[in-house]
Simulated scan of single mutants.
Amino acid sequence: MAFGEQPAYLRVASDLRQKITDGALPPHTRLPSQARIREEYGVSDTVALEARKVLMAEGLVEGRSGSGTYVKERPVPRRIARSGYRPPAGANPFRQEQSEDSARGTWESSSEQDAAAADIAARLGIEPGDRVMRTRYLFRDGGEPMMVSTSWEPLAVTGRTPVMLPEEGPLGGCGVVERMAAIGFVVDNVLEEVGARRGLAEELMELGGVPGHVVMVLERTYYASGRPVETADVVVPADRYRIAYHLSVK
């Protein structure tokens, strides 16, 4: 095979993928059978089977027991806006995660003290095993699971203060910036790193995904005069949402 030339099964998969994208094979349409692919493209059964496997791995088609393989309906991704915008004091902090005024954001949460694992300790600038407040969130948009988030705050910062529990007390439910300001820590910058991986079983169960789905993971850390005061992992289903950044240029 010459340099740059695709294997036969990839060429067949590419052509079928294009038909799906163009609408020639719309959602819920049955994918051509293995025998039909073999005849239409002049390839072997092995090549036809591998081409179908590629489309299934890409999430474009799905098998239905006793019926065949069908084109999946693909949701139109919605945007999760990230910017330097800070909601007014006392406002719902979930507004910062939404790009549409009509979005109806709600969340559930639970907090408990924990010992910082090595990777979390490194992000917070503390020692492994130091005590942190770990809070788990499930965010919904119009009732639909949108993202899950786990945050860690060093108890050396928040312990024995009115904001020790993020969702309780006088500032319960407020954003990190407002809560930290109340105890004398002025958040002045944030670091966000975005990556992708296969979703964990418990994440996908909460988000309504299926095993094998890819998620985006946003690692976020808030700093006050160089000191990390909170770090979080925000997990978003990659097939339903995109993370959009709107940054000012100075």
Results as ranks from 00 to 15, higher is better:
residue 140 R to V: 11
residue 31 L to G: 10
residue 212 G to Y: 05
residue 231 T to G: 06
residue 40 E to Y: 07
residue 66 G to R: 03
residue 11 R to G: 15
residue 151 S to A: 15
residue 111 S to R: 00
residue 220 R to S: 07
residue 29 T to F: 02
residue 104 R to D: 11
residue 189 N to A: 04
residue 188 D to H: 03
residue 39 E to G: 06
residue 128 P to E: 05
residue 44 S to V: 08
residue 54 V to T: 14
residue 78 R to K: 12
residue 104 R to N: 11
residue 206 E to R: 14
residue 42 G to I: 05
residue 86 R to H: 00
residue 122 A to Y: 03
residue 197 R to D: 08
residue 236 V to W: 02
residue 45 D to Y: 14
residue 139 F to Y: 12
residue 130 D to E: 13
residue 109 S to P: 01
residue 180 M to C: 07
residue 220 R to H: 07
residue 113 Q to P: 11
residue 88 P to K: 01
residue 229 V to F: 07
residue 222 Y to D: 12
residue 233 D to H: 06
residue 32 P to G: 08
residue 173 G to A: 06
residue 109 S to K: 02
residue 180 M to A: 05
residue 49 L to Q: 14
residue 138 L to M: 12
residue 105 G to C: 11
residue 9 Y to Q: 15
residue 135 T to P: 08
residue 227 R to V: 15
residue 206 E to W: 13
residue 132 V to K: 08
residue 161 T to P: 03
residue 107 W to K: 04
residue 230 E to I: 01
residue 13 A to Q: 08
residue 15 D to Y: 00
residue 71 V to T: 04
residue 72 K to W: 07
residue 70 Y to A: 00
residue 1 M to G: 15
residue 142 G to D: 12
residue 151 S to M: 10
residue 141 D to T: 01
residue 236 V to K: 01
residue 218 L to I: 14
residue 129 G to Q: 06
residue 20 I to P: 04
residue 64 R to S: 03
residue 15 D to H: 04
residue 228 P to W: 06
residue 196 A to P: 04
residue 40 E to P: 05
residue 122 A to C: 00
residue 181 A to E: 11
residue 147 M to T: 09
residue 141 D to E: 06
residue 175 G to W: 01
residue 118 A to F: 05
residue 229 V to I: 13
residue 10 L to H: 14
residue 158 T to G: 03
residue 3 F to M: 15
residue 77 P to K: 06
residue 239 D to R: 08
residue 156 A to Y: 00
residue 42 G to K: 03
residue 5 E to R: 15
residue 240 R to F: 09
residue 78 R to W: 06
residue 178 E to V: 14
residue 121 A to L: 03
residue 104 R to I: 09
residue 39 E to T: 15
residue 114 D to V: 05
residue 49 L to S: 15
residue 145 P to R: 05
residue 100 E to R: 04
residue 63 G to N: 10
residue 188 D to Q: 02
residue 162 P to L: 06
residue 174 C to P: 00
residue 99 S to A: 15
residue 132 V to I: 09
residue 73 E to I: 00
residue 230 E to M: 01
residue 110 S to F: 10
residue 184 G to N: 10
residue 250 K to E: 12
residue 28 H to G: 01
residue 155 L to H: 01
residue 163 V to I: 15
residue 136 R to E: 09
residue 119 D to E: 07
residue 47 V to Q: 02
residue 93 P to F: 01
residue 212 G to M: 09
residue 15 D to S: 10
residue 41 Y to G: 02
residue 117 A to S: 07
